[in-house]
């Protein structure tokens, strides 16, 4: 357990940044809580641990200190010092209410250091000093723990990325991803516009869709939620007649298609028909549930029919809904891209 020195959230030992405020965390063994485990021993640690969630996370330092003193009797001294040791941060946190992200425009709480929507650092100087300063656009790798990895610079013109990427100085890590095709996607930067084109890759290129915005989908549209790859399949034979005889089957009601789980290039697993009022997908809620996929939100997304068109909408999921692109797709700054096993943020 690492207690954040800024907002006192308790984070798991392997986290590098606070899950709540994004502040860099000390390493687990340097954590203020652990550092107090000498003499008063176990009791001290237990108190320190539980206090993290009980304490108000921001604002008036004096009240904090008092509350802490009365309930804890000073047993987690180390933590009080650590919090007090960084007064500048708590001050800035309290000063600004909402900060718009310069990239995607999302309003973030003032103490956020990274945009909650696109992950861009909200510290302007940090952005200017980006390692790919020479490039006009770049892809920033997001590691599984949420930290930023290497940056791949994109120059004007075309850049093809994939397992064989030799065209970039920093494409090395791509060569280890066996889910990337040798030539996976082409990025074209021209006159300030960036487009990505799938190079007929085996696994495709996915773009995260905005929450609560409907995206029209049609036959064979593929999307990802959590670890699941889903495909919408429009029905082709409704009301079919062979030699004057109707083909027997279950009533098709208002069905226009179904959503199927993709489990290999040519087979699907479970599949469910999309009724007129739609299907909700979630880990716990919805007509279709994924109880075993911890990366799917409680209620994740919805597929529904309106005016004879089919739409996919993210219901505000934590990890997002990713739509597989067909052909070329114009990117916006802050877009999140999924290629192979890699997640990238687009910056330009």
């Amino acid at each position: 357990m690492i207690v954040c020195t800024r907002c006192s959230n308790e984070n798991q030992d392997h986290y590098k940044f606070c899950l709540v405020c994004g502040a860099p965390l000390p390493k687990a063994d340097e954590s203020p809580v652990k550092s107090t485990t000498d003499a008063p021993a176990a009791e001290g640690e237990a108190n320190g641990g539980s206090s993290g969630t009980d304490r108000p996370s921001s604002g008036n330092g004096k009240g904090d200190a008092e509350g802490l003193a009365s309930t804890q009797m000073g047993s987690s001294q180390g933590k009080v010092e650590a919090t007090a040791g960084d007064p500048s941060q708590t001050a800035t946190g309290a000063s600004a209410d909402r900060v718009p992200c310069p990239s995607c425009g999302t309003e973030n709480p003032g103490h956020f250091r990274f945009c909650g929507n696109c992950g861009l650092s909200l510290n302007e100087e940090e952005n200017k000093a980006s390692p790919s300063a020479g490039a006009r656009a770049s892809l920033v790798l997001i590691r599984p723990d949420g930290t930023e990895g290497q940056t791949i610079g994109l120059e004007d013109g075309d850049t093809v990325l994939g397992r064989d990427s030799a065209s970039t100085s920093s494409g090395e890590s791509l060569s280890d991803d066996l889910f990337l095709s040798p030539k996976h996607a082409k990025f074209s930067l021209s006159e300030g516009e960036l487009t990505v084109t799938d190079q007929n890759s085996l696994n495709g290129v996915y773009v995260r869709i905005d929450a609560k915005v409907p995206y029209e989908i049609d036959d064979k549209t593929v999307f990802r939620i959590g670890q699941e790859v889903l495909r919408y399949e429009a029905f082709q034979n409704l009301g079919g007649v062979v030699q004057g005889t109707k083909v027997l089957g279950s009533p098709s009601k208002d069905y226009v298609g179904r959503v199927a789980l993709v489990i290999s290039p040519d087979t699907v697993g479970n599949a469910y028909c999309v009724p007129k009022d739609g299907l909700h997908f979630g880990r716990e809620r919805g007509e279709v549930v994924f109880p075993d996929d911890g990366y799917v939100s409680g209620l994740h997304c919805r597929v529904y029919v309106e005016n004879d068109s089919v739409f996919l909408m993210d219901e505000g999921s934590s990890n997002g809904t990713f739509l597989k692109i067909r052909g070329s797709h114009k990117l916006r700054p802050g877009d999140l891209l999924l290629m192979g096993q890699q997640l990238f943020r687009v910056q330009f």
Binding site: F179, N203, Q227, E228, V229, L230, F235, Q236, N237, L238, G239, G240, K246, V247, L248, G249, S250, P251, S252, Y255, R258, A260, L261, V262, I263, S264, V268, G269, N270, A271, Y272, C273, D292, D293, G340, Q341
Partner: peptide, 24 residues
Amino acid sequence: YSSPKRPSPFCLVQVLEGGDQGMR
């Protein structure tokens, strides 16, 4: 890259009017 899968001894498929495969 596929969805997580498990071994399955058989599948049942709903056949819709017209012959399309529905629920599976």
